[in-house]
């Protein structure tokens, strides 16, 4: 399966394309956030009559209303997109790299290397995701890079497993043996011959990891373990929770909640669609 083929099939898949459009939308928003956000997300706002905009419902001036501190929710959500996209992209890329590399090495070499790496993977599988992330951030201190580290340290496991089993079936194909007979070294076989052939599969798990990463970051921020200097969707919700406004100010809850749902969903949609493309058995049914 080549990339142009993957792309052609992806374009025919409505749900996959929907996911891609949603993701592209958020990425654009993230890039241009400072220009789109009408207010400083941290600053308090005032009504025309000069009074403090405290928990105002949506209006033309504040499409998503305001918070208890008079901040513009719309601007917070827009700016929060940056953290979501950044976390999503960075962790997904790192997860893909780490997981794919471990899968490649483990599957290709086999033997004790495989045993060792797969035992580590099993251990990673045994670790519950959120509690681990909370503990790690609690130890290392809050901060975006620690959040990403927590996500990456856990999420590579499924990528590694899937890539490994793909490599196991690829490495007995005779083009790999032919490369060996030509004198190709192990790194060359792994990087030049195996990696390009597992890349589409790796993409599936990258998209999936992106969804998980965004959700985890939001959860951590909601639980108060986010980066204190940054606004993220989870943090917007956390502030709302702390303000005990969750059941009063729906406008404060719904926009960030919806944004999280949409972006996470887009990751899953893209991943599902890529998976069908990569795995023809799914495509037929």
């Amino acid at each position: 399966m080549t990339f142009s083929e993957t792309w052609r099939l992806l374009r025919r898949d409505k749900l996959g394309m929907t996911g891609l459009v949603i993701m592209a939308f958020f990425i654009v928003v993230a890039i241009f956030a400072p220009y789109i956000a009408p207010y400083d997300p941290d600053a308090a706002n005032y009504r025309p009559d000069g009074s403090f905009s405290r928990m105002d419902p949506p209006s033309w001036a504040h499409p998503f209303g305001t918070t208890r501190l008079g901040q513009d929710v719309f601007s917070q959500v827009i700016v929060g997109t940056r953290v979501a996209v950044l976390v999503g992209v960075l962790s997904a890329v790192m997860v893909a790299l780490l997981g794919t590399l471990i899968g490649l090495v483990s599957g290709y070499y086999g033997g004790w290397i495989d045993d060792l790496l797969m035992r580590i993977t099993d251990i990673a599988y045994g670790v519950p995701f959120l509690p681990f992330a909370i503990i790690l951030v609690a130890i290392l201190g809050p901060g975006l890079s620690n959040v990403i580290a927590a996500i990456v340290l856990i999420s590579w496991r499924s990528t590694a497993r899937v890539i490994r089993s793909e490599v196991l079936s690829l490495k007995h194909r005779s083009f790999i043996e032919a490369a060996k007979v030509s004198g190709a070294s192990d790194p060359r076989i792994i990087l030049r011959h195996l990696a390009p052939n597992v890349l589409p599969l790796s993409l599936v798990y990258t998209a999936l990891a992106m969804g998980w990463a965004i959700m985890t970051e939001a959860s951590l921020s909601f639980l108060g373990y986010g980066d204190p200097r940054l606004i993220s969707w989870g943090k917007v919700l956390f502030m709302c929770y702390v303000a005990q406004a969750i059941d009063v100010a729906w406008w404060w809850v719904v926009p960030p909640g919806l944004a999280i749902t949409l972006l996470v969903m887009s990751g899953f949609l893209i991943s599902r669609s890529l998976e069908e493309i990569v795995n023809p058995r799914l495509r037929e049914s």
Binding site: R173, S174, F175, E177, A178, V181, S182
Partner: peptide, 15 residues
């Protein structure tokens, strides 16, 4: 020393 494999559909890297 070189080898020619049985299946030409498998012995060339598709990429």
């Amino acid at each position: 020393a070189q080898m020619v494999f049985q299946d030409p559909y498998e012995s060339l890297n598709p990429r």
